[in-house]
Nucleic acid binder design. Structure first.
Lengths: 142, 142
DNA sequence: CTAGAACTATTCAAGCTGCAACCATTGCAG
DNA sequence: CTGCAATGGTTGCAGCTTGAATAGTTCTAG
């Protein structure tokens, strides 16, 4: 079966579908939990990725999206007083994103919600490690 | 390390980011190739999933999206004469999607483009198999 | 020093997506 | 047969996302 190139291609396509499907499943999970805090899915993703002060570009990279999109999402968070845009200490082009007290508090509550019933809970620790290794390898040679 | 629940939760969050990242990477790959045929990413995904006659609901499931979205995308494909909405033979509520000759021809060209330089080519056959197993397990108990 | 390439962030237009509301049809319980 | 819940598809709306164009800043070669 692994010798038939056409079958291998079809298997690879199916694999892409599985990855995308799991990704949507994860995003739906985030959306669901985020809604209970009055956040949209992407807003919650941004909050989750804001592990500390960082630039817009950093956040965009972590969210795997375009910088213009990060602008859009951060606008919402800023309007709700969860995050602040400060001038970057070293680079006047850049801005430094910092969570407000409200932001850190909401982020903590969000993280707690997200760890409960994660879609990846079906996998045990060993499997998660294997998965992480494979994904890192797949992503490395983009 | 696997005994610290907080670290495990953080690792799980990172894993979610990896899955989403790889998914975007795949979709970007599709977008790129699709553009050379004058198709958008989602249009190409729909075409790829149209392996034969199916209903709108079936297509939406295969695309991991809402039926309303399938309506939107199929509208585009239909306007370009790639697919046809026929009344379903058994169920008058449903519609049967069928590729036109132009549609099948374009789909063949698309599949050929997609199999070249897939983002998953970094993984060998064994790794792809284990990945598929893990993803199936993760998705099964949604 | 200076011109130009490269980078950060933003704006805008166009397109994608999910959700809730809706109509028509189906299937089932009474 | 009738009522009614469930299903397939569409519509409208709000929100997300990308890609191109732009302004300001940094870096580098000459």
């Amino acid at each position: 079966m692994s010798s038939d190139p056409e079958a291998a291609a079809a298997a690879e396509r199916q694999l892409c579908g599985l990855v995308n499907g799991l990704s949507r499943q994860i995003e739906e999970h985030v959306r669901e939990r985020a809604a209970t805090l009055g956040l949209t899915g992407p807003q919650a993703t941004a909050l989750r990725e804001l592990t500390g002060p960082m630039t817009m570009r950093d956040l965009a990279d972590r969210m795997s999206c375009e910088p213009s999109n990060a602008t859009f999402v951060v606008d919402k968070l800023e309007k709700r007083g969860l995050v602040e845009r400060r001038p970057h200490p070293q680079d006047r082009r850049a801005k430094q994103l910092v969570l407000t007290p409200d932001g850190t508090e909401l982020r903590d509550r969000l993280l707690e919600l997200l760890t409960k019933d994660s879609p990846l809970a079906a996998l045990d620790q060993d499997e998660q490690d294997t998965l992480q290794g494979l994904l890192l390898r797949a992503r490395s040679l983009h």
